[in-house]
Write a protein that binds this DNA or RNA. Structure first.
Length: 300
RNA sequence: GGGGGGAUAGCGAAGUGGCUAAACGCGGUUGACUGUAAAUCAACUCUCCCUGAGUUCGGCGGUUCGAAUCCGUCUCCCCCCA
């Protein structure tokens, strides 16, 4: 199995920097596991790593799409696996850095995504959550038991899977073994809640000073508010501001709150969805021991 | 000095005699997660020995079988007249 180093975890704790450090120490190259930094136009709000910060280490998966395209897990999985092969083929260590849990999990484990045509889901518009859930109950009772009726997007997705693959989501899942396909060393980075929240709040202020508003304005005129990427934190909150429903201060406060909530969700994800070695990034000693562990792991 | 309005859980705000430990919103916490995932969704949020009990609606005192809700009084806040 190919060795892959993964630096996952919470937003704003210094994953990118640690990635570069590891790359320099262990002859690595970096693949971004981030669902927003892929877009060329979204830089400030996505807290994208800058050219300087890369320190000459090759980074893949950043700025590879423009806003007229749409990204998804399947594309990411395909792209990242290919990059892993290329990097490993050159005798270097592939390092995944990012906080999109599903993306990283889908990359490392044997998730199978079938080729699907974009489906027309306009037929769902006239149906209520309950009606849609009833349909799922009939077609895929296992998933119906797992997906809450109010989780409309998931219910529709489960129904769409049946239409496009003629198999239920439960059947597709049962064909996968949930096993990992790489020799992966996975770190999940975090920080004590109070320190983290202070940093995140401040990061948003800095983004504003760096011109986030202009970036959002440009992006929305290019992609429109309905583009999936514009649903990202740091972008969607400004819709109400541009349409004069809230003040700029209110919009900024919302970005901060949503960033905090997001960080919490990331902790929950990595805590329960993937075995990880947790790192408290506020402790120098944790970072040092991580480096030692990687050194150890590289020798096996 | 006179007149009027108001004080409700971390915050905002309903509630005007029993169905109220108290709607709703915000904030917070916990969790779910296989193609929008920085997305989407759920649960909890007075206290405790928590399928039950205890103490709450500015303070004190009363009316009543029963009060956040009625009466008296005190404290604080806001508005108007002087």
């Amino acid at each position: 199995m190919k060795k892959v180093l993964v630096i996952a975890g919470v937003t704003g704790v210094g994953k990118s920097k640690l990635g570069v450090t590891m790359a320099k120490l262990f002859n690595g190259e970096i693949i971004s596991g981030d669902s927003v930094a892929v877009y060329k136009e979204l830089t400030i709000g996505s807290a994208k790593i800058s050219k300087d910060e890369m320190e000459g280490i090759p980074h893949y998966g950043i700025d590879i799409l423009t806003l007229d395209k749409e990204h998804n897990v399947r594309n990411f999985q395909e792209y990242a696996r290919q990059k892993i092969d290329e990097i490993a083929g050159r005798g270097k260590l592939p390092i995944i850095v990012g906080g999109s849990g599903l993306y990283i999990r889908a990359l490392l484990y044997d998730y199978v995504f079938h080729s699907e045509q974009p489906l027309d889901i306009s037929w769902t518009e006239t149906l209520t959550n309950t009606e849609l859930h009833k349909q799922l109950q009939a077609a895929d009772p296992i998933q119906a038991g797992i997906i809450h009726e109010n989780n409309r997007k998931r219910v529709i997705r489960a129904l769409s899977i049946i239409r496009s693959t003629h198999q239920s989501k439960s059947e597709l899942l049962s064909q996968q073994s949930q096993s990992i396909i790489y020799d992966a060393k996975v770190f999940a980075c975090t920080m004590p809640r109070d320190i983290l929240y202070g940093r995140l709040n401040q990061r948003v202020e800095l983004m504003m000073m760096d011109g986030l508003l202009d970036e959002v304005s440009l992006a929305k005129s290019k992609a429109g508010w309905d583009h999936p990427a514009m649903m990202a934190i740091g972008y969607k909150e400004f819709k109400d501001y541009f349409e004069s429903r809230i003040s700029l201060e209110e919009a900024v406060a919302l970005v901060q709150r949503n960033t905090r909530r997001f960080a919490k969700r990331q902790v929950t994800w990595f805590k329960h969805q993937m075995p990880c070695r947790w790192l408290d990034m506020s402790l120098e000693s944790d970072i040092e021991s991580a480096i030692n562990e990687v050194r150890e792991w590289m020798n096996h």
